[in-house]
């Protein structure tokens, strides 16, 4: 069975893409799913968050730029969880000027080579809208959009949806699309109003569990740990376990 390829995408920064990628993938791995997560952000925040610190080591950059086999770039970081780091040259993809639309198809081709045994491949996208994100959208079957509950994130979501529609039209495909409410502050009225607007436009497409804002989620990357290692059993760990089950079972708001 071919792995489900999920792009964790939002061109707005600070909405929880990497936090979602780190903790959701670890939660899924703990539930027994075989996961590969690709750090597709040249800032390498996913790599650091999972405790891998080797700025010179190649990763997905070598796969895309030099044609290396993806399987050789896998780093087992947790049980059932493999990481492909960004690598120091990933930013060069954004500067590619030759190849036309084929520049957007590098990742898809790499993921379809060889026999893969993962259940899921997650792509942690950069907060931008360039060639890297185009590659993620060419490759992905599904799009998972972390959203904060503030007005500018809503504005960003509007832009993102326009972009996704263009890709669906150009590539003649329809993505499975879901949103995750991250950094949610239940006591804030604005949070509820933003969620209400999103529910109006995306009925049945918002994962049932909201990830509430906590200091612990901000702290764990500096120790290279996921929330399950940093404070097992805490509220955020429970949120992400519930989110992983929502994701697997298709449980939506």
């Amino acid at each position: 069975m071919r792995a489900r390829i999920v792009a964790v995408l939002n061109q707005k920064g600070g909405v929880g893409k990497t936090t979602t990628s780190v903790n959701l993938t670890h939660a899924l791995a703990k539930l027994g799913k075989k996961i590969t997560v690709i750090d597709f952000d040249p800032q390498s925040h996913l790599t650091v968050s999972l405790g891998v610190v080797d700025p010179q080591k190649g990763g997905i950059d070598e796969v895309l730029l030099e044609g290396r086999n993806l399987a050789k770039q896998l780093i087992p970081v947790r049980e059932n969880l493999n990481l492909v780091i960004a690598g120091p040259r990933l930013q060069e993809i954004e500067q590619l000027v030759d190849g036309g639309a084929r520049r957007g198809d590098l990742l898809r081709k790499a993921l379809h080579e060889g026999n893969r045994d993962e259940d899921f491949i997650f792509i942690d996208c950069p907060p931008s809208s360039g060639v890297l994100v185009a590659n993620a959208l060419f490759a992905a079957d599904e799009i998972l959009v972390p959203m904060t509950s503030d007005y500018l994130a809503l504005q960003g979501l509007s832009h993102l949806m326009g972009t996704i529609k263009k890709f669906e039209s150009a590539l003649k495909k329809s993505y499975k699309f879901s949103l995750v409410m991250s950094r949610y502050i239940p006591t804030r009225r604005m949070s509820k109003d933003v969620l209400s607007v999103i529910q109006k436009y995306f009925p049945g497409q918002i994962l049932a569990t909201t990830i509430r804002e906590t200091a612990l989620l901000a702290e764990c990357p500096s120790f290279g740990k996921t929330i399950f290692e940093y404070r097992p059993g805490c509220r955020s760990a429970r949120d992400f376990t519930a989110l992983a089950k929502d994701f697997l079972e298709g449980r939506m708001m």
């Binding site: 809503l154 326009g162 604005m190 607007v197």
Partner: peptide, 17 residues
């Protein structure tokens, strides 16, 4: 009553998303 003054997603309904 809403704190959302203008709805940036309104086009999605308008153009039959």
């Amino acid at each position: 009553d809403s704190l959302i003054g203008y709805d940036p997603l309104a086009w999605m309904h308008r153009s039959d998303f």
